[in-house]
Design a protein around this nucleic acid. Structure first.
Lengths: 224, 224
DNA sequence: TATAATTTTTAGGTTAACCTAAAATTATAT
DNA sequence: ATATAATTTTAGGTTAACCTAAAAATTATA
């Protein structure tokens, strides 16, 4: 179990992991990966073949890819590093949450298990990163999370608390910050507009705000 | 002045910078670089040609290489990152000084000026890294150093203080640690053995120790 | 100073990761 | 059910960074 993968290979594994997570489907299409990694389907086909020869991906031609146990374990460790570094950047270096993704994309490929573990320790073994994403431990175990739902599931009149932002889009994050929405923010759903799937929310300070469908899609909450 | 260099290209610039420093010569031989980077002379020739087309290296065939102003500036920034990360690893994550070089070799290529500056700030803008090497600032200016000489220059009876170890060799660093020699250690030269260029030193606790020529070569001191 | 030794460069090849275009396969729609 | 559309793979090409071996240039030596 001594893989020495290139950054590219790690990125493919991570992408597949994230796409499984996002799409809740176990077989990931080649085009989806290509899209996610901003590369071409032909490049993906090639890489998938290589990774399946290394037994990190399970794949039958034309049928889509999934991760093997080993592939999954590696992806999880890359994600662990990504989220630990994001936490470091925000907590220790005072970066804004919209600035860290890009830098963490680089840092996640640093190869040193000892570094990762010491970093985690230094940060106090954080369970969630600045976007509310759970941070797996050295063994790949994720922390337990409260029951998380998407904001669009919240009914009129219900109270909820933001626990996670499901996107690294800089402008979305800046928008949320400007409107005082962050991890832990408590909100009330005061109105639902069916015609465009937007909603009106109320913050603790009684300020109200209309959120578009696209914004809502990326806000995950727990009910209060 | 917006270069986007590969890790390899950065390594070549850094290597030339370090070799200029070490050899005190302004023209660096192709073979020296090959040796330093554990690559072949033919690869170096190729890369040198490329970097001189980018005007980062000044070079005439068969005559050796030197850095242009731009090449030097880039090398210094890579070195800045290397030394800041080494400091972080030792000061904040409690790594030993013999463990950090390898990891810093990876971290030095992370591209984010903002990260570098925030890291420096987080560390309190350190002037020297764990091996006593000076850390240049954002503008590439190195801190002033006291007059530094090599340990072999110290005469019998003189007192000196270790300010710098001129090697990243793990075993050398472990050896020094085991013998209570580190940056800031005060020593007295009690004997010089001409026949093998070794010396006997005395530490503050009166313990004496014989150091070989190779060890001495890598210990730089200031006289006290 | 001519010859030998060393150093450096060039020529030509390999590998990883990308690409475009064409072919193969699968999915969709009439 | 078959034609069309979409997806995926294959074929063949490019680039960066390495390599070996041979050629060229420089340096050292007899």
């Amino acid at each position: 179990m001594k893989y020495n993968l290139s950054q590219s290979e790690e990125n493919y594994l991570k992408s597949i992991y994230n796409l499984i997570d996002k799409t809740k489907s176990s077989l990931i299409n080649t085009n989806l990966i290509a899209d996610d990694l901003k590369t071409k389907a032909s490049s993906v086909s090639e890489m998938i073949k290589k990774l399946s020869e290394k037994e990190l991906i399970e794949y039958k031609k034309y049928k889509g890819s999934q991760l093997t146990e080993n592939g999954n374990a590696i992806a999880v460790q890359v994600i662990r590093k990504h989220r630990l570094w994001e936490t470091f950047l925000v907590e220790k270096l005072n970066f804004e949450w919209d600035e860290v993704h890009e830098i963490a994309e680089q840092l996640e490929h640093i190869k040193s298990i000892k570094l990762t573990n010491k970093l985690s320790e230094f940060l106090g073994h954080p369970k969630f990163d600045p976007h509310g994403d759970p941070i797996p431990n050295e063994k790949g175990i994720f922390p337990k999370q409260h029951f998380v739902i998407n904001l669009k599931q919240v009914k009129q009149g219900q109270f909820a608390e933001v626990v996670n932002i499901g996107s690294d889009n800089k402008n979305l994050l800046i928008f949320l910050t400007k409107n005082n929405i962050g991890i832990g923010t408590k909100i009330k759903c005061v109105d639902i507009y069916d015609f465009d799937d937007s909603i009106k929310i109320e913050l603790m300070d009684k300020r109200t705000l209309i959120l578009s469908k696209k914004v809502i899609k990326n806000i995950n909450v727990k009910l209060n």
